[in-house]
Amino acid sequence: MKEKEQLVVEAIKNGTVIDHIPTDRTLQIVDLLTDPDDCYFLGVNLGSTSVGKKGIVKLQDKVLTKSNLEILSALAPQATMNIIKDFKIVDKMKLQIPDEVIKVFVCPNTRCITNHEVIDSRFRLGNGEHTCAYCERSFSVDRLRTHPSHGPHS
């Protein structure tokens, strides 16, 4: 399988490889973590024993910021991250899932105060669901849209 991945996803010289992303969240994560000029490679629907079909993203010459890591942890807590230098893995990292993420998601509850006042949304993570700290409703990650400030062109 590894050999097949290497055929479809180009190796990078320096940068970050994010592996074991649930395949249906791969494009969303790319969208959120990259800028328009970034160079990256991605694969989706690759086989994985841990998450079923998985996605992989290779970000050329890019190190994730703390904010990037929060988004990634909230969207794909089971993902792994490798830091690449001169085509070699120099650091392997597991994501630290934060207790709470601020201004990452938009609350899907249209009656939530966060959709009516200029305030940062806050979601608590846990039990496979994210819970709005204001309206107290819980949502699966699939139902959450990310905050416009995390868009690729923000």
């Binding site: 509850n109 009656r111 939530c112 966060t114 305030i119 700290a133 409703r137």
Partner: peptide
């Protein structure tokens, strides 16, 4: 008392 969910927390 407020019509919007989460108003009291805010």
């Amino acid at each position: 008392r407020h019509p919007l969910d989460g108003a009291a927390r805010l």
